[in-house]
Design a protein around this nucleic acid. Structure first.
Length: 467
RNA sequence: UCCCCUGUAGCUCAGUCGGUAGAGCAGCUGACUGUUAAUCAGCGGGUCGUUGGUUCGAGUCCAACCGGGGGAGCCA
């Protein structure tokens, strides 16, 4: 069979790749078949877009192959493109040849009706063939590309930070260990595991962030970004946490916190607009079938055309205190904002993305730049309705003495372990800032999908690494 | 890890006061139709998550464990 010649359905329906009346060949998977005595319809989807194309067979008895065509089967369909006689589609194919490429029998799990996302997660190898996951996977690809476009067009260099890390100073949660030790017979010296004999000659982990290495490159290339997988061994069982996720981390030299916030806001808006304009068909689907209030696109359009709300942590606490809202956890200056507080700010008070900045020193990481008030640091979080924290970033402490003092004060390890990180503060140190955007969380906000496990093809979460 | 909910047919679920299992959809067969989540008729389909306990008798009550969902914490 000839698989070389074919036209993608997206090309037929959106790009007018085939003039009406011309011959066309489609290769794809059957979504539904309707056979009767005088006419049969075969709907095929090839993944190129949301829509199927309908093949029409005027004389079903001339196509005995129809007996074998069930939902899920792969087919090659050849015929003449023509305007549809029926309602619901613009074009259809007057079929002259219909070949079975790969059979799918009646045990094919996907039915011609809606399935629960919980069920689909258990058949993650087949769920890409559904409308929802087709749309999710297409938009994921488009937005990954868009992210590169955004930074490349603005002079940021794409750098690759290590996935295996021996760094002690990442300090963002629990780490997955990387080892070649025989776990049934771990070499021990003086009662402790002997890491000298391990593969890297030291303890090694999967990275929880490329930030520290990103800072090193930013202080050479100027503006950089990373975009890669990130691993957290937290026992988090929520709809917005995954053990393996993708993160975008820009880092800018000669930049301060307001530059960081400006970049975060401009970047997110640009990304939302890109989704609305370049993924219109899939976005319409999310708007209609996934977002609960069916106002997904309206909401994104509004966000693109307005400013993010920016409040200091101190102002945020004041707003919460004055809100008369009953919170499970009371607010006071110095306490970390709870989910309920963040949700109130972004969903009720402002109903749009909110940037909270200048957090108390005590609740933030050692590398964040100390403010002049002596009690807060130049950190910022971007909160969005429905998802919560989507970006976390900061201006980095560039003053050697201050940073060294913070490492000691926060008791996060021996100073000598931070040698290379401190070195860029010794040699040509510059103010710099950056942030991390959770790619999946951005996808959740853009698509309206409620669970992070449904915006990544094969999610990794505690007790689940199948496929 | 903690709190709450939940697990019954391929899927989504019902199952009363403890008395031995039901519906819709899907599937199969047939009819019919420019159909489009097609329609109509008929048919088949179950280790009630697992183990133990209470009971004459457990899908139902109790316990433990396992799975799933929601929320919290951690964070992106």
């Amino acid at each position: 069979m000839d698989y070389k010649t074919r036209t993608r359905i997206a090309g037929i329906l959106f790009d007018e790749a085939v003039p009406v009346g011309n011959e066309v060949i489609v290769l794809g998977w059957i979504r539904t078949v309707r056979v009767s005595k005088n006419v049969a319809f075969v709907e095929v989807n090839d993944g190129s877009c949301m829509k199927n194309i309908q093949g029409v067979i005027g004389d079903p008895t001339a196509f005995p192959i129809l007996e074998k065509l069930g939902t899920g089967a792969a087919v090659r369909m050849k015929g003449t493109l023509k305007p549809s006689e029926g309602k619901g589609q613009q074009y259809e194919i007057d079929v002259t040849e219909l070949d079975l490429v790969g059979e799918a029998d009646q045990t094919f799990p996907l039915q011609k009706k809606r399935h629960s996302f919980e069920f689909l997660r258990e058949i993650a190898h087949l769920r890409p063939r559904t409308n929802t996951f087709g749309a999710v996977n297409r938009i994921r690809s488009k937005l990954a590309y868009a992210i590169h476009q955004y930074y490349q067009e603005r002079g940021f260099y794409y750098i690759h930070t290590p996935i295996i890390s021996a760094s002690d100073c990442e300090g963002a949660g629990n780490l997955f260990r990387v080892t070649t030790h025989d776990l049934a017979d771990v070499p021990v010296a003086d009662g402790e595991v002997n890491w000298d004999d391990d593969f890297f000659g030291t303890e090694a982990y999967l990275t929880v962030s490329g930030q520290l290495e990103g800072e090193l490159l930013a202080t050479a290339l100027g503006d950089i970004y990373t975009f890669g997988p990130t691993f957290r061994a937290e026992n988090s069982n929520t709809s917005r946490h995954a053990s393996e996720f993708w993160m975008i981390e820009p880092e800018m030299a000669f930049a301060e916190l307001d530059d960081d916030m400006d970049l975060a806001e401009d970047f997110l808006k640009w990304l939302f607009q890109y989704a609305l304009e370049q993924c219109a068909d899939d976005m319409e689907f999310f708007d209609q079938w996934i977002a609960r209030d069916e106002e997904l696109r309206k909401r994104l359009e509004h966000v693109v055309n307005s400013s993010f709300e920016r409040v200091t942590y101190t102002e945020a606490v004041e707003i919460l205190e004055k809100s008369k809202q009953k919170f499970e956890f009371p607010v006071h200056w110095g306490a970390d904002l709870q989910s309920e507080h963040e949700r109130y700010l972004t969903e009720k008070k402002f109903n749009k993305p909110v940037i909270v900045y200048n957090y108390p020193d005590e609740i933030k990481a050692f590398y964040m730049r100390q403010n002049d008030d002596g009690k807060s640091v130049a950190a910022m979080d971007v909160l969005v309705p429905g998802v919560g924290e989507i970006i976390g970033g900061s201006q980095r402490e560039e003053r050697y003495d201050v940073l060294a003092e913070r490492i000691v004060k926060k008791q996060i390890g021996e100073l000598e372990n931070y040698g290379w990180y401190l070195d860029i503060r010794r040699y040509g140190s510059v103010p710099h800032a950056g942030f991390g955007l959770g790619f999946e969380r951005a996808l959740m906000y853009i698509t309206g999908m409620a669970n992070i496990r449904d915006v990544i093809p094969f999610p990794r979460v505690p007790r689940w690494a199948k496929f």
